[in-house]
Design a protein around this nucleic acid. Structure first.
Length: 302
DNA sequence: ATGAATTCCTGTTGGC
DNA sequence: TGCCAACAGGAATTCA
């Protein structure tokens, strides 16, 4: 599952190997990854074919490639998506969904034929053509900046979060307020901040939320440090199995393991059809609010 | 309008 | 050993 730092690595790879080239052929091998292109796969291919890529941009986990037509190719990797630059002669990947033939770059020696390939096992990701051009595509106008974006406004986020009665973990996952945080990083940041994900935003002090943002950035920075993904190679690679997941997670996926800080066993509770992991000692659950009817408290804690 | 639950996918894992 | 249910998750969609 590509996390934000990995998506940025992909963007840099696209910048290095795809920008400046033409997408001179397009082959859509499976309809699902272009489902958000409502006019269909043929229209998608027609709009992209022959167009030159002007840039590689990112907002949250979305990527887009402005084209010389004024359109842009909008991409999201979802759970398992990859964008690979491969020799055209390389055998097709098992889950290859869309392939773009790349024009030769300008210069005396264009080198071997290359392809940009969208590979996606589970197909939560996808591609579409947006009329937005180089600007933020309208389809993702609601996606907030991510915490690593220099223009991310911490104070604005803190103020918005304190207006919300939602659980703070939901707030971290709300793309309208802050982007780029998935279930894993949310749990890790909450563990680092010693904050239970069920705390309502309205109950948090500004300093606590600023601290939480700092911990989100720390998790992302640690991932970048440990990821070891190199983007000066030919391949624009996303490896969801990077060593980071094995070594650096303190709480996520560690039910029953001792908390690295206090030794208390990490607990797992259901959350939005998935799981939340936390240390019950370092991250004490919020007290039930007074005035609620008996049994009204939810959240799966005992 | 707001917030919460549901949904889409396929490969892996664990229980029996 | 094989079968099947549970699980994983970004974010749009649907529901209350």
């Amino acid at each position: 599952m590509p996390e934000l730092p990995e998506v940025e690595v992909v963007r840099r790879g696209l910048d290095a190997h795809v920008v400046g080239r033409a997408l001179d052929s397009v082959e859509v091998l499976h309809p699902r990854p272009v489902r958000r292109h409502l006019a269909g796969a043929e229209d998608f291919a027609a709009l992209v074919s022959g167009r030159r890529v002007l840039a590689a941009r990112r907002r949250g986990k979305y990527l887009w490639l402005p084209l010389d037509s004024g359109d842009a190719v909008l991409a999201h990797l979802g759970m398992s998506g990859q964008l690979l630059v491969q020799p055209a002669t390389a055998p097709p990947e098992r889950h290859l969904r869309v392939r773009f033939g790349l024009g030769r770059p300008p210069g005396p020696d264009g080198g071997q034929r290359l392809e940009l390939r969208f590979v996606d096992q589970r197909m939560f990701g996808g591609l579409s053509v947006s009329p937005g051009g180089a600007d933020l595509p309208p389809e993702i106008a609601h996606i907030a900046r991510d915490p690593l974006d220099p223009l991310f406004d911490d104070t604005r986020f803190v103020a918005a979060a304190r207006q919300r009665a939602s659980e703070v973990k939901r707030i971290l996952l709300d793309q309208r307020l802050v982007s780029g945080i998935g279930n894993i990083y949310a749990d890790e940041a909450l563990w680092r901040a010693r904050m239970h994900g069920s705390r309502p935003g309205t109950a948090l002090r500004p300093a606590q939320l600023h601290r939480l943002l700092a911990e989100v950035r720390a998790v992302m920075a640690a991932a970048l440090e440990q990821g070891g993904t190199s983007f000066d190679s030919l391949y624009v690679n996303v490896n969801g199995q990077s060593g980071y997941f094995d070594r650096s997670l303190h709480a996520y996926g560690r039910e029953g393991d001792p908390c690295p800080r206090c030794g208390t066993p990490i607990r797992r509770i259901p959350f939005m059809n998935r799981s939340s992991y936390f240390c019950p000692r370092c991250q004490p659950p919020p007290r039930a609010r007074r005035g609620l009817p008996r049994g009204a408290r939810t959240g799966g804690r005992d």
